[in-house]
Simulated assay, not measured.
Amino acid sequence: MKPGITVVVPTHTARVRNGMAKRAIGSVLGQTLPAASIIVEHDIAGAGAPDTRDRGLRKATTEWVAFLDSDDQMKPVHLERLMECALETGADYVYAWYKAVGFGVDPLPHFGRTFNPERPTQTTITTLVRTELAQSVGFREPPEGALIDGERYGEDFLFTVECVKAGARIVHLPERTWLWNFHGSNTSGRADQGDARIR
Results as ranks from 00 to 15, higher is better:
R113K: 15
V16Q: 15
Y98T: 15
D92G: 10
M20D: 12
D192R: 06
Q31I: 07
V137P: 05
L158S: 02
G104I: 00
P174Q: 00
T131K: 10
P143F: 14
G102K: 08
W64K: 12
Q31A: 13
A36D: 14
Y98V: 14
D149Q: 01
W178D: 07
L108S: 07
N116L: 12
W64V: 10
R169E: 01
L133V: 08
V137G: 12
C163D: 01
T32E: 08
E162W: 09
G4R: 04
I44N: 09
R190I: 00
A14S: 14
F111S: 12
T32W: 03
V28G: 01
R169F: 03
V9M: 12
E132M: 12
H42L: 09
D106R: 01
P109H: 08
T160G: 06
R23D: 05
D156F: 01
R197S: 07
E141L: 15
Y98E: 13
E155M: 07
A96E: 03
T160A: 09
D192I: 02
G194R: 07
H172E: 10
R140A: 11
E88F: 05
N116D: 15
P34V: 08
N186A: 07
D149I: 02
F115T: 06
T89D: 01
G104E: 13
A168N: 01
E84S: 15
R140L: 10
S136P: 05
V65S: 04
R113C: 09
M74T: 14
H183D: 06
